[in-house]
Amino acid sequence: MNAPATQKIRVVVAKPGLDGHDRGAKIIARALRDAGMEVIYTGLHQTPEQIVETVVQEDADAVGLSILSGAHMTLVPRVVELLREQGIDDVLVTVGGTIPADDIPELKELGVAEVFTPGTPTQAIIDFISGSVQEREPR
């Protein structure tokens, strides 16, 4: 990595809702950090409002939402809506967790860039985020 530290991709890894399944979120946070990104992990039990506030404060390039409680069709639209209300349209939104295949088109329609279901290799997630962020705002 030759890029100066100030140009690191900044990613918020967030756990919306009440489920405590943080194994995946922590693995992803660590993998993204090991891949040279600046990772802010929100910790558990975050409301959509808290997550959007973190995205704004941290001036993030991307936010990854990890949900394993089945509440994704309530929580993800809320996060996307709040981002929009804040006038944020350049933050990459991805979702990971137990998301049924049938829900994925609707999430993408809302503006979610990608949905990572169980078994996705961490490298695929790293590649997607670094590729998409660089594409959006060439640095």
Binding site: G17, L18, D19, A71, T74
Partner: peptide, 11 residues
């Protein structure tokens, strides 16, 4: 509670 949104009776 607002914190329960989307999670009631789900799991």
């Amino acid at each position: 509670s607002p914190l329960s949104l989307g999670e009631v009776g789900r799991e």
